[in-house]
């Protein structure tokens, strides 16, 4: 009897988690723009400013495309829960509380493709929440 009760409890928790995974597929941020590698953001006083949104489970824009040698300003906002942005090669690790905007600036001096990881556990899809920074 106790096992049945606990089973029911677990499956109701799972139901809530599944509902959110469904949202992941149909959510408003899922339909990312199919950018054809145009430069992201805009230049303001010789600084490339890009507004990045983090959400369950992705980043927008994705990929972020910049030129090598530029100074990059990322204005990052989490749209739902606490996320993080971690670019290992640039030693950037910033926590993004919900609805708060954080700004980081750095010079993109390494050419190539770099993975943006979410560094704070944000739900079952967290493991596949990656973005890309392309420096060309």
């Amino acid at each position: 009897m106790r096992n049945i009760l606990f089973s029911l409890m677990i499956f109701s928790w799972v139901g809530i988690g599944c509902a959110q995974m469904e949202d992941m597929h149909h959510g408003e941020y899922q339909h990312k723009e199919k950018e054809k590698l145009l430069l992201s953001g805009e230049l303001k006083d010789e600084v490339r400013e890009v507004e990045v949104k983090a959400f369950q489970y992705g980043f927008s824009p994705d990929p972020i495309v910049v030129n090598k040698g530029e100074k990059l300003r990322l204005k990052m906002t989490s749209m739902d829960v606490t996320h993080g942005i971690w670019i290992k090669e640039y030693k950037i690790n910033v926590t993004l509380p919900p609805k708060e905007t954080k700004t980081i600036e750095f010079i993109v001096d390494k050419e190539g493709e770099f993975v943006l990881y979410c560094s704070v556990f944000c739900g079952p899809g967290h493991g596949h929440m990656h973005g890309k920074l392309i420096v060309r």
């Binding site: 959110q20 829960v81 919900p98």
Partner: peptide, 15 residues
């Protein structure tokens, strides 16, 4: 309490 997205917050479950 903090007026965050309710369902999104609930989904931070690590099964």
């Amino acid at each position: 309490l903090l007026h965050h997205q309710f369902v999104s917050q609930l989904a931070i479950l690590n099964f």
